[in-house]
Nucleic acid binder design. Structure first.
Lengths: 151, 151
DNA sequence: ATAATATCCTACTTATCCGATAGGAATAAT
DNA sequence: ATTATTCCTATCGGATAAGTAGGATATTAT
């Protein structure tokens, strides 16, 4: 499981992506309210994303946050990583939280390691081909589908 | 990430799978030593697996644990589930640890939910086609590969 | 029978991490 | 100035995971 932190980050960035072309910025409070995220917690998360170079900020009254890259270029896997969320199911197959198993004499001979690598690759494949723009597009499709179903 | 508990469970069951055809059983102590798992912890895990009907046990001196099903029929996903390990990356797409997001008005309209479902399906697909027998087979292949590489 | 060897069962400890909060300093717009 | 906002550090409480303790119960071997 990825931490809530990562999920909140994705939601927040999705909000920012929606106003990207208008070159608008959004305040923490606005995003927090829109997405039902605890305000102070979101503050910490956005700060982390900013220090990681994923978003920009404008201080002072009428300030806020904005994306520094196009929503097409920001993919889910990098958001998860930037917020400290592990994707792999085991430490020994994690790129960012790697830890070797004491019990494995040779990692390259471990069958479980091998399988878990496959799982990781499959997950990362999906998560790094899906951008914020894709996410928004997906929601539009889902809305249309629900609409046509309701009739 | 899945808990260590689940990983230990897989290792232990792999041991039992290796002696399955000889209708042997192994004691906790034996497995613990072989796999470098804390003895008492393994005890708790095997007990859980037994109560879940995945393994059988024989009490008393010269007792131990054994598989009740063929190693072909025991897949990784069910071991992970039996030991309380989540496979999904978010609670809202988890089969066994489902929790709805307060922030999502309609789950069916959430793009993230949609993507995470895909990730879950991909992971489960791999984990439920891989059995203990496959795991052992994989290790044999890896060993052969390493052998031919060493030359 | 008795001793030795196992599993069974419940409860506990301990450490770590996660989610969330507090409080104020710095900065910019009006 | 006042107000709105980000920036920064520190902290708290609760949950969960990993591992431990100790004894009850069952079986085998001698």
């Amino acid at each position: 499981m990825i931490p809530k932190r990562s999920k909140y980050a994705i939601q927040a960035l999705k909000c920012l992506a929606k106003v990207y072309r208008d070159k608008k910025h959004l305040s923490i409070a606005t995003i927090a309210e829109q997405e039902h995220i605890p305000r102070k917690f979101l503050e910490a998360i956005l700060l982390q994303l900013r220090n990681g170079g994923m978003v920009g900020s404008k201080m002072g009254a009428n300030g806020g946050y904005f994306l520094v890259k196009h929503p097409d270029e920001i993919v889910l896997s990098s958001i998860i990583r930037a917020t400290g969320g592990p994707i792999a199911l085991l430490p020994c197959v994690s790129l960012n939280f790697y830890e070797e198993c004491i019990e494995c004499p040779h990692e390259e001979l471990c069958g479980l390691h091998d399988v878990m690598l496959e799982v990781r690759e499959a997950s990362i494949h999906i998560l790094s081909k899906t951008s914020l723009a894709d996410l928004i597009l997906r929601e539009k499709k889902l809305a249309r589908k629900a609409e046509s179903k309701r009739k």
